[in-house]
Write a protein that binds this DNA or RNA. Structure first.
Length: 272
DNA sequence: CCAGACGTTGTT
DNA sequence: GTCTGG
DNA sequence: CCAGACGTTGTT
DNA sequence: GTCTGG
């Protein structure tokens, strides 16, 4: 599951990257350990030009109490084996829990990285998973809804992150789901109310592993009350060789190495 | 009909 | 709110 | 968030 | 009382 992630980019950086404006009086601190119940920035299909805060952990509007659902399978009940080559219909449109939101209340969840552990060890052996070439923040496909607490009248806007089958990188860290990551043009399509169900379905697939990498971090991340920068310091080398994409789409293989030296090497590549 | 479930990841 | 199972 | 577990030795 | 999982 994708129940932890990082969003530490400033409001300014998000505004520039996604060509949006923060909602009035929006304030949030860098969070290197976003967990269920936290407020985090999203952009909604209702208001695709605005950064808003919402609570991580989805509750549909009809629920009698909060549900805190973190993820929604894009294939729904299809592909129960989590096969990476699944290419059929996206069953999320059929699920009572999600059908209204996937049609009318889509959002993108802004992240700099996400955190995932092996199926067995889970967060006892966590990895930070990120996009290479400093591509951050990026957008994860999500759904949201507004839930009213009948006893207090309080309204909570909450969201869940859509998941897809694993790519080669996820297999390497022994996890069999991953969040749906959208590139910039797909974000616009995903948040556009006029995009058809079929077109939305086509966007919900696993991101190219060659554009990603991951490294081990400390299991300190398990503590939901900690969220400082040091939590995502690498404790091992990245798990795969990096394919560094230049602007002209030529691929260069960049060798393994600890983060500092790897970034140094990337810098050298960029400089010629 | 109508009470009860509706979800995830990973299995009790 | 909408679907399922008994 | 909040319900449920929180342990051992020895394994299903 | 505190941690974990969903």
């Amino acid at each position: 599951m994708c129940g932890r992630y990082v969003i530490a980019s400033t409001v300014k950086v998000i505004e520039k990257k996604f060509k949006v404006k923060a909602a009035p009086e929006l304030v949030f601190e860098p969070n290197y350990n976003v967990t269920v119940g936290n407020q985090a920035p999203i952009i909604t299909s209702e208001n695709p030009n605005e950064i808003q805060l919402a609570e991580f952990g989805f509750t549909p509007d009809w629920a009698d109490k909060k549900k805190y659902i973190l993820n929604a399978r894009s294939e729904g009940d299809h592909n129960p084996e989590n096969r990476s080559d699944y290419s059929g219909a996206k069953g999320i449109f059929l699920k009572p829990y999600f059908k209204k939101s996937i049609r009318f209340k889509r959002c993108v969840v802004l992240a700099d990285a996400f955190i995932e552990g092996p199926t067995k060890e889970k967060l006892n052996q966590p990895y930070l998973v990120y996009l290479i070439n400093k591509k951050r923040p990026f957008a994860m496909a999500g759904i949201y809804d507004d839930w009213i607490d009948k006893s207090t009248g309080e309204i909570t806007r909450s969201f869940a992150i859509l998941t897809s089958p694993p790519n080669e990188l996820m297999n390497k860290i022994h996890h069999h789901r991953m969040p749906v990551i959208l590139n910039d043009t797909d974000v616009d399509l995903y948040l556009n109310k006029t995009t058809t169900q079929h077109e939305i379905g086509d966007l919900l697939c696993s991101y190219d592993y060659k554009l990603m990498n991951a490294y081990r971090i400390s299991p300190e991340i398990k503590r939901p009350n900690l969220n400082e920068k040091e939590l995502i310091n690498p404790i091992e080398e990245p798990v795969q060789k990096e394919y560094y994409f230049e602007k002209k789409q030529t691929i260069k293989l960049v060798g393994m190495g600890m983060t500092s030296s790897r970034e140094q090497r990337l810098k050298e590549e960029e400089e010629g």
